[in-house]
Every structure is written in C-alpha cells, then in structure tokens.
Amino acid sequence: MKFNILGSSSLKVSDICLGTMTWGIQNTQQDADAQMAMALDAGVNFIDTAEMYPVPPNADTYGDTERIIGNWIARNQDARNNIVVMTKVAGAGLKYIREGGPITASSLTTALDESLARLHTDYIDVYQLHWPNRVTPHFGKHWPDSTDPTTIDRDKEISGMRNILKGIKAALDAGKIRHWGLSDDTPWGIHAFLRLCAEENVPLPVSIQNEFSLLHAKDWPYLIEMCQCENIAYLPWSPLATGMLSGKYHNGARPEGSRWTLAQRMGLFRDQPAAQSATEQYVHIAENAGITPSQLALAWCQQVPGVTSTIIGATTLKQLSENIAAFDITLSDNTFNDINNVFKAYPMGF
C-alpha cells in the first residue's frame, strides 16, 4: 500500500480511502466489520463517512453509518489512533437534519458533537463541509443551463463562510477535530475559504472530495491544479460512477440489491446515453487488458496527477477485494492510449 501526505497536514493516508455510505442499508454491522478487517489487512488506514449516511438518505436511517463505525471503534479502541477518520456535516435541504437549515457555526457545533457521540471517539481527524450553502454545479447541475452564478449573493455567502469558520476554529481549539476540509465545492469556494482563513487566522482546509471518474472529469485540470498549487488533497468520490463503470448496468440491467434499484434522491441522472456508450468501450478495454472494468477505472483514477487518495466503496467482500487489488495495477501504454481515445470523446458522460 502506498501512502501520501494529506494536503498541508502531517497525516499519512493510504492510496485507498474506504467509503462507507452503504453501511446501514445495503450493508449490516457484520458486513462492515468484515470490510474493515479486509481493508486494514490490506494496509488501508483512511475511512470516510458522513452524518447523513447511509444512502439513499432518509430520516429512519440518518446517522446509522456513523453508529456502525462507532460500534467498531468501541470494540477496537487500540486501533483508533492508527486510522484517519473523516466525516461530514450535512448542508441544507434535508428537513429531518436540523430542519433542513444551512451550515452555520452553531449547526456545525451541534452536528459535530452528535457525530463524535455516534462514532465513539473524542476527535475527528478531518471534518468536512458536505456541500456548500449556495447552489453549486455538482450532482448533475454542472451543465451550462443548470446553474446561474449571477444569482449568487456574494456578500451573503462570504458572511456565511466567515461564520462557518468560527465554528471550525472553535472545534479545532477544543481538540474535537484535528483538521477540516471541503466537499462538493468549486475553485471559487476554495479560493474564498483560503482568503478568509488568512483573515480570520483559521488553519487552512487540508482536503476536498468531489465526484471524479472516467465519466465525470469536470475538475480536471482546473480545480485539481488549484488543489495541487495550494497544497489541498484532492479525494475523488464515486470513481466507479455509482457502479456504472463496473458494467453491471449495461443495457438497462438492474442487478438485485444494487444501488440503482434503490430510490435516488437526485434521480438516476448519471444514466445517460453518452455514459453508457463510454462504459461499453471501457469494458472492452478492460477485457483486452486482462482486468475487470472496475479495476480499469480505479487504476486510471489513481494515476491522475494531483489525486491523493481515492474513495472506494463496496457492498460485498468480493467487490472490495477486487477494488483494492486495482491499486497494484500498472496500466500499459497501449491501455492508456485506448482509454484516452474514449475519454477525449466522452470527457463527461453525464
């Protein structure tokens, strides 16, 4: 297992970050324990979760993923200092989470205390803002006609960010979090927080996690360049495009128990003709390379300059083993050429 420094922190994190958002709906406590054992045995030391997990998010299961991880931590206290745990405070929009309100210093403090209790830990290694308070070009809203930046009230957003940083600083000073980071944000969001941190004397964010895959590479090169130059770790989530790049949804297939058989909060916006066409070609490239389509997508993601650690998830140990093995694969020049030909034709499949 390879390890990298997480942005401006001193944390050394594995190439692989274990995502946990299926734990609580698709996976049980027993499943989670088995995944933790396999990941740790492979050298993974990086775990990502969120207060709103599992997905699809709903009032009945809200917080259950953190509870499952907390149950594991409670039984494995000696291992706590050897793993890097990230979680996230939910943004606005979920009525059952603080009445759907935005992230503020006050709501962040409340959410953090509740996460600490569920996780059975005294501190969070990296506490992240799950998404900005403003509407941003993420979750299917990245096409030119989906958002309107002229409607953003800049002064209001800056004021809100200053308030959030008060909550971040209080949490850092209290030792409840060691570092903080962003998620689902943009170059302007990063820039604004960097400037405000300097003004308010708050430690800089150490990471950002955004959706990134062979089918969704809108952050490359611009946002990733900014992260590299500002020493912010870039952490891709959904590198398999919610499982699409495995090929399991080809020709409208919906395998029993798979994510696309569940209700989707944002709908199946990734299920687009271009994405399906690109995936079909990537599947053929993987076959020619003698690896699985999932391994092709993950091995590609790992080698993108500026990627620090890739967040993977699985519902079965077989999938997890397959995905972990991808990070020991070196793609040949011929395979890269084949990938690039498809990638240039479909830089954003959805």
Results as ranks from 00 to 15, higher is better:
K2C: 01
N4H: 08
N4E: 05
L6W: 00
G7E: 01
L11R: 00
L11S: 01
K12N: 06
M21F: 13
G24R: 02
Q30S: 12
Q35G: 04
Q35M: 08
M36V: 10
M36A: 04
A37C: 09
A39L: 02
D41M: 07
V44C: 04
V44D: 01
F46I: 05
A50E: 07
E51N: 10
E51T: 07
Y53R: 11
T61C: 13
I68E: 00
I68P: 01
W72S: 03
A74P: 06
I83F: 02
V84M: 04
V84C: 04
V85D: 00
V85L: 12
M86Q: 09
T87A: 12
Y96F: 15
I97F: 05
G100S: 13
G100F: 12
G100V: 12
G101F: 07
I103G: 02
L108C: 05
T110S: 11
L112H: 05
L116A: 07
R118Q: 12
H120P: 05
D125K: 08
D125L: 05
V126S: 00
W131H: 06
D148W: 07
P149N: 09
I152T: 06
I158V: 15
I158T: 14
I164L: 12
K169V: 09
A170M: 08
A171S: 10
D173N: 11
A174W: 10
A174F: 10
I177S: 03
H179T: 05
W180N: 00
G181T: 10
L182H: 02
S183F: 05
P187G: 03
A192T: 13
V202P: 02
P203K: 07
P203F: 10
L204K: 13
Q209D: 13
F212L: 07
L214A: 02
L215W: 01
H216E: 08
K218F: 08
L223A: 04
E225S: 10
E225T: 15
E230L: 06
I232E: 00
Y234T: 00
P236V: 06
L240I: 14
A241R: 01
M244G: 03
K248N: 08
Y249H: 07
Y249F: 10
H250W: 14
N251V: 14
N251G: 11
E256W: 08
R265L: 10
M266A: 15
P273A: 11
A278F: 03
H284N: 12
A286M: 07
N288S: 13
G290R: 14
S294F: 03
Q295C: 11
L298V: 08
A299C: 12
Q303W: 13
V304R: 06
V307F: 01
T308G: 01
I312M: 05
L317D: 14
L317Q: 15
L320I: 07
D333E: 13
N337H: 15
D338Q: 12
D338R: 04
I339P: 00
K344G: 05
K344T: 09
K344I: 08
A345D: 11
M348K: 11
